[in-house]
């Protein structure tokens, strides 16, 4: 029953051995080991499992993994590059576009799919598009604000200041008390 195949997830090839009825959601979470994609309703209504396959937004809970062979699958784990958050991720942090966070990977992937096709949607277009992604915590206000902040270029650079952090680490090891403590 099981067959070997290759899934291309976030630009990386993964060998998996799966049955034909394996859902993309299960394959991503259990076979590839990327658990950022979440299960919410299991019937393609809530959008928590939204991923992008060959540029199209799909519900991974309704998609058979075998149909994704040879296609480019994008998940939440592929957004940050070299430790730097994607502007949507930064924006969701800055504008509080999540609370519990369970729907957040799906919200961000849905927003990415929209902005990949139309980088300057109106607020109404965002509302219409994002209405396939349910959230029970936020009332959606801050999700909309987070997406529109990216559209309008209002996202700050990453607020963790690496220079300050390095300086603090430097001062830690140069500290007199540390030295005197060690030699006592």
């Amino acid at each position: 029953m099981k067959r070997e195949m290759v899934l291309n997830v976030n630009g990386e090839e993964h060998d998996v051995e799966i049955t034909p009825d394996r859902l993309l959601l299960e394959a991503l979470r259990e076979d590839v080991g990327l658990t950022g994609t979440k299960e919410g309703c299991s019937i393609g209504v809530c959008g928590a499992c939204s991923v992008i396959v060959d540029g199209r937004l799909v519900s991974a809970c309704l998609t058979l993994a075998v149909t994704c062979e040879g296609k480019k699958i994008e998940t939440i784990e592929g957004l940050a590059r070299d430790g730097e958050l994607h502007p949507l991720q930064r924006s969701f942090v800055q504008y509080g576009g999540f609370q519990c966070g369970i729907c957040t990977p799906g919200q961000i992937m849905a927003a990415k799919a929209l902005l990949d096709h139309n980088p300057t949607p109106s607020a109404d277009q965002v509302k219409e598009w994002m209405s396939a992604n349910l959230c029970r915590c936020t009332g959606y206000y801050k999700i909309l604000e987070s997406v529109m902040a990216v559209v309008e270029g209002k996202v700050d650079e990453e607020r963790r200041d690496e220079a300050v952090r390095q300086a603090r680490i430097q001062s830690l090891y140069q500290s007199d008390t540390y030295k005197s403590g060690a030699s006592d």
């Binding site: 658990t35 784990e77 958050l85 942090v93 966070g101 990977p105 607020r159």
Partner: peptide
């Protein structure tokens, strides 16, 4: 920035 924010937006 929310304490666990990075964890939640990166999956």
């Amino acid at each position: 920035d929310r304490f666990e924010g990075h964890d939640k937006v990166t999956g």
